[in-house]
């Protein structure tokens, strides 16, 4: 990887991570198990994915790459493998609920972006009916109408089902719509791909993946 690419990648990942921390919060990444190892709640309020009496299992360092690959249905790219190998020690070792850290979330967002990029690149050339996540997205058109319309609902719901195992809530769709509306004001065709990338990355680095119960 050349220096220019490294800087761009790092900057993109850093910025994406900042956005996603907001996104994760909106998705309910604010809970903690009250069971595992007596670790107590991370932040008090319980997410729907972490309920009392049920122990949270934080994504283990050995399972990160395989899990993201499974969820997106794509192999890890060379870049994704590099990120994974370089950052492996920042992921949870024990899977206990008190092993969620800032570096872990940062690097999961970075890795997720890479995996999601592979997913978008895979789906974009396919005819809509053959896609798994972005059936309603027209990658040849600008995002404006798609973000405000049912195409976004469909894409978000498909990603939510695949990653979280449940349908997206209306609040979640509204949250993502709001972020994407703000992010796609340049309204180029490339923005449509980026919107798809953002939806995937937001979910892949969310509580659904981190505390995969």
């Amino acid at each position: 990887m050349n220096d220019k690419l490294g800087k761009v990648t790092f900057l993109a990942s850093l910025t994406l991570s900042l956005i996603l921390q907001t996104g994760c919060y909106k998705m309910g990444f604010k809970g903690g198990s009250d069971g595992a190892d007596g670790a107590g709640a991370i932040n008090g309020k319980l997410d729907r994915n972490i309920v009392p009496g049920k122990t949270a299992q934080v994504l283990n360092f050995r399972a990160v790459g395989k899990s993201l690959s499974n969820l997106a249905g794509v192999p890890l790219s060379t870049q994704a493998n590099t990120f994974l190998n370089n950052d492996i020690t920042t992921y949870s070792l024990s899977s206990a609920s008190d092993t969620i850290t800032g570096p872990m979330l940062f690097n999961l967002a970075k890795l997720s972006a890479e995996v999601c990029l592979s997913l978008v690149n895979k789906e974009k050339p396919l005819v809509a009916a053959n896609r798994k996540f972005y059936n309603s997205i027209d990658f040849t058109k600008v995002p404006a109408a798609q973000v405000s319309g049912p195409a976004l609902d469909d894409a978000v719901n498909r990603v939510s089902r695949m990653v979280c195992g449940h349908d997206a809530s209306a609040a979640m769709v509204t949250s993502i719509r709001s972020d994407l509306t703000a992010a796609t004001t340049t309204n180029t065709v490339q923005d449509t791909s980026n919107a798809a990338l953002m939806i995937c990355t937001a979910y892949m680095s969310s509580a659904c993946t981190v505390t995969n119960n």
């Binding site: 990648t9 910025t15 956005i19 990029l117 992010a183 796609t184 791909s193 980026n194 990338l197 953002m198």
Partner: peptide, 9 residues
């Protein structure tokens, strides 16, 4: 981020 991801991607 969208702008950067554009180059990045």
């Amino acid at each position: 981020v969208v702008g950067i991801v554009l180059k990045f991607s």
